[in-house]
Design a protein around this nucleic acid. Structure first.
Lengths: 339, 339
DNA sequence: ACTGGCACTCGAAACTTGTGAGTGCCAAGC
DNA sequence: GCTTGGCACTCACAAGTTTCGAGTGCCAGT
């Protein structure tokens, strides 16, 4: 059905449209890419491609633009992920060197990704679920307010405030702190939840109400569902969408504020070798019909800790973007892994 | 020069323009507000106001729109800050109740502020400089990687990663941890810096290199200049700027990513009673010529910990916006203060 | 199977025209 | 001496018209 040349034509259309953002016609196409055939032939091929649903006409007597299906085919079969130039690779590593903590790594990564892809970048903080408890700190802020700090093996720090009904006893706090650490340090967060219950029981009934409050709060911190953190950057690149602000840009801006939606967009974490690309309507959010997402996991070669990616118009330069996302994910994984 | 009625006319022009976003002419003005005079009279007043630089014409034979100076006069002399309705007040308090930690308070505040003002909200995290050390935690992540966690009296948690050249000795770490806490807990961050030096001296020379690395990192964490954190929200409200995306919205989006610029925009923290309003060109950033900033401090009645505010088009509804910003600042201060 | 030719389509840009909100100014009126 | 009605003038905007050309589909010829 689709012979080699038709695919060449589709590839040419996608590349041209991505470069110009204007519908591309048969003549222009033959001029720009040396396809070795006449416009008339290309027209026939185009008719076939349109028949199959890979391209479409915005209106009669205009050129063709790729459909979501067209981009899909292009990404899957007609393009190869572009590797970065040496200069770009150098820029990446120098950008990430010197981060002072996990937050800083994430912030720098977002900035970097936005900068080199010229798109909106999204980076998920390493998930808690796969990490383990490194240390738990309990600090009294005011006589009736405690601050819990949970430090995980991935270097992530979670805090919780606990309000109490009566003034707290410093001795009890110290006791609680040491018992919590003894019981939980080294445990995976998922397992730590169960261990928490037994800790409560070792306390005198009189102290149980305080302990229970702390435990509840810690449990909350352990069960991360719905509270996964995300960093976003490069929103100014949304200008690249062209006009029709209201229809294209606004929903994206709205989505960027809804971290729940972003998490869905990023999808399941994959390892840094595998790139997930969602094109237009493939996205699980209707506002992003003219938007594509390129995402991948990061953390370590074998097991992904979290996901990062970019959001951009469907008419983006997929090979370059995919290359950049993959490269950044690899570098970040490396930074997080080695010490 | 400017009698009572001329000021009334200016007020009417500002209110009308803010409501419609269209140049307002003499006839419309008389129709909508009952000024009790004829359009011709209003025209004369308008000519005077234009002479003084408070209003201007986009082109001949169009209505007038306020200039930055016009808005300035309006804000300073012609309007009163609008107090919120009971329902709005209730919404504010219910929105902020249940925050689990300082980060959460800030995040919720940004969201809330963006929602009720329908503008872009900016909230600065409570500054470190005025707070004191509550606790310092040193945790080994890997044999050669330490995580420092600094907890301040304001509930802010700072983290730093320290890489060492040789494997660390757990005993030494425990020792360091306790000495640091003994020496520094309760001290203001500004004073703590000096105390740090003396702590180093109490260690055996062999351990000094490790201790020095930790101390350096802590010092960094203490001196916050240039690393003040900021949260931004409600970027989708930028749609409200009308068209001319490229000229109005893009620079704002860019500014929102540059936290250094935002800090300048927010300016010095004032107490929650005083509202800072910067209109158009008054802003210390050229990209925001069509933008106004409404900001105020928050933290406690007497002393402001940090600043929060909104960024929006110069043609915003100042009375309502100012009322909302002030109200939110007060509520947040309250949340942070009482326990 | 490809190509050149040809009639046709139709959006975009350039130009034209009409309309009306708005202005400035002036002379008359309270 | 303000205020006002009247009047001629301006000019952006919208609607209508024309032109232009890139692009198309189809068909007959190689």
């Amino acid at each position: 059905m689709l012979d080699e040349r038709k695919l060449d034509v589709l590839r040419a259309i996608v590349e041209d449209y991505v470069a110009t953002h204007e519908p591309v016609g048969s003549k222009t196409l033959v001029d720009r890419h040396n396809l070795g055939v006449s416009p008339a032939t290309v027209r026939n091929d185009m008719a076939a491609l349109e028949e199959e649903g890979y391209i479409t006409q915005p209106h009669t007597s205009a050129g063709r633009i790729p459909t979501d299906a067209g981009y899909r085919l292009f990404v899957d079969k007609l393009s190869t992920v572009k590797t970065l130039s040496a200069a770009e690779k150098k820029a990446i590593s120098s950008f990430l060197v010197g981060a002072v903590d996990l937050d800083d790594v994430v912030r720098r990564t977002v900035r970097l990704l936005a900068q080199i892809t010229r798109q909106v970048a999204i980076v998920q903080y390493p998930t808690l679920s796969r990490s383990s408890v490194r240390h738990i700190e309990v600090v009294t802020m005011t006589p009736r307010r405690l601050l819990l700090v949970l430090i995980t093996s991935t270097g992530r720090v979670e805090q919780r405030i606990v309000e109490t009904h009566e003034d707290v006893d410093e001795q009890l706090i110290a006791d609680l702190r040491s018992r919590l650490n003894t019981a939980l340090t080294g445990q995976r967060l998922t397992d730590a939840a169960t261990s928490l219950a037994s800790v409560t029981e070792t306390f005198a009934p009189a102290d149980r109400s305080l302990v229970a409050a702390v435990v509840t709060s810690l449990l909350e911190a352990f069960t991360v569902e719905g509270e996964q953190r995300i960093a976003v950057g490069g929103a100014a690149n949304l200008t690249r969408y062209g006009d029709d602000f209201e229809r294209n840009v606004k929903p994206v801006l709205e989505a960027l504020e809804e971290h729940v939606i972003l998490l869905k967009l990023l999808g399941e974490a994959t390892n840094p070798q595998t790139l997930t690309v969602r094109i237009g309507h493939e996205n699980p959010y209707e506002g992003l019909a003219t938007t594509s997402v390129v995402a991948t996991g990061y953390g370590s070669k074998s097991e992904a800790l979290a996901t990062l990616g970019i959001v951009g118009p469907t008419h983006m330069d997929y090979p370059s973007t995919m290359g950049a996302v993959r490269a950044v994910a690899r570098y970040v994984s490396q930074i997080l892994a080695d010490s």
